[in-house]
C-alpha cells in the first residue's frame, strides 16, 4: 500500500497521429508519452503547428490516435465525455443557446435533475462573474466573457480532467491576465487535473506544475521541466510572479528550448 506507485489520472502512451495515410500524409504527433497525476497542472508549449492541438484532441478522445493509447486511471479511456472536459481555443459556444443554456447543456445531456442543474449553474455564474449575462447569447458577449462561459460550461460538469487548448490565445492581454489568475486560483482551490496547452512561456511557468516542451513537427516531447509547486509567488498576481528569480530562470530555460525549435523549422 505505502509503496504503490500512483496511477496517473490521464496517460497518453506512445501516441502517434498521422493525418491522411500513414507515411504519405502528415505526421502531427510522433510517439509522445505523457502522464498527468491527479491534481497536477501540466502545461504543453511548443512552436506553432507542432501538434499540440492534435495531442489534445487525441487525449480528449475526439480523434483516434494512429498508434498508442489513452488511459484514464490506468484503463482505456473510450469515447469522449464529460469526465474529460475540453475548453477550446475558439470557445465553441453554442450560438443558439443563452449563457445559462450553454452552461447547463452538459448537465442535461447527463440527465442531472432540473433543481441540481440550476444550483450548479448559479454556482458557476458566481465563480465566473457571469451573473448579469445569464440570458445573453454568446454573440452579445466580448471574447473574454465568451471564454468565461466556455470555462464555466466545462467546470460545471465537475470533470475529473480538464483539457484546455490555448484557452486565452484569442483574448486581449488584460483579460488574459485576469483569467490566468482565476484559473490559478480555481486549480489551487479545487485541485483539478489539468492538461493546458499554450504557446506563451510565461503562462506555462505561472500556471504549470510541470511544463512539457514539444519539438517542431512532427511533435515529440523534447523536455520536461518540473517547477516548484505551492510556492508563494504562484499565488499572487502574474506580474508580481514574473519578477521572481525562479520564474525568470524557468522562463529563460524554457524559452531557450522553444526558440531552438522555432529556429530549426
Amino acid at each position: 500500500m505505502q509503496n504503490q506507485q500512483s496511477t496517473p489520472k490521464l496517460e497518453l502512451r506512445n501516441i502517434t497521429k498521422w493525418f491522411g495515410p500513414k507515411d504519405t500524409g502528415v505526421c502531427a504527433v510522433d510517439n509522445c508519452s505523457l502522464a498527468v497525476q491527479k491534481g497536477e497542472f501540466i502545461c504543453v508549449v511548443g512552436p506553432s503547428g507542432c501538434g499540440k492541438s492534435t495531442l489534445m484532441t487525441v487525449g480528449a478522445g475526439l480523434e483516434q490516435p494512429t498508434e498508442g493509447e489513452i488511459l484514464v486511471d490506468g484503463k482505456p479511456a473510450g469515447p469522449p465525455g464529460p469526465q474529460r472536459s475540453v475548453v477550446f481555443q475558439k470557445f465553441a459556444l453554442f450560438p443558439s443557446e443563452t449563457v445559462a443554456q450553454n452552461i447547463k447543456f452538459g448537465l442535461q445531456m447527463c440527465g442531472v435533475d432540473a433543481k441540481e442543474q440550476e444550483r450548479r449553474l448559479v454556482e458557476q455564474l458566481k465563480i465566473m462573474k457571469l451573473e448579469q449575462f445569464r440570458d445573453a447569447y454568446p454573440s452579445e458577449l466580448s471574447g473574454g466573457m465568451q471564454q468565461r462561459v466556455a470555462i464555466a460550461r466545462s467546470l460545471v460538469m465537475q470533470p475529473e480532467i480538464l483539457l484546455m487548448d490555448e484557452p486565452f490565445g484569442a483574448l486581449d492581454a488584460q483579460t488574459r491576465t485576469i483569467l490566468q489568475e482565476e484559473v490559478q486560483r480555481l486549480h489551487r482551490e479545487h485541485h483539478y487535473t489539468v492538461l493546458f496547452i499554450t504557446h506563451s512561456v510565461e503562462e506555462a511557468v505561472y500556471l504549470g506544475d510541470r511544463v512539457i516542451v514539444m519539438s517542431r513537427r512532427p511533435g515529440r516531447i523534447k523536455k520536461e521541466i518540473s517547477l516548484p509547486r505551492d510556492v508563494v509567488w504562484k499565488r499572487g498576481d502574474i506580474e508580481v510572479a514574473a519578477e521572481h528569480p525562479d520564474f525568470i530562470a524557468a522562463r529563460r530555460e524554457i524559452w531557450a528550448l522553444v526558440r531552438e525549435e522555432i529556429i530549426a523549422q
Binding site: 478522445g61 475526439l62 465525455g81 475540453v86 477550446f88 465553441a92 459556444l93 453554442f94 460538469m157
Partner: peptide
C-alpha cells in the same frame, strides 16, 4: 467544433 464540444459534454 460545436459537434466536438457537444461530444465532450456527453451528447
Amino acid at each position: 467544433l460545436l459537434i466536438d464540444a457537444g461530444r465532450t459534454l456527453g451528447a
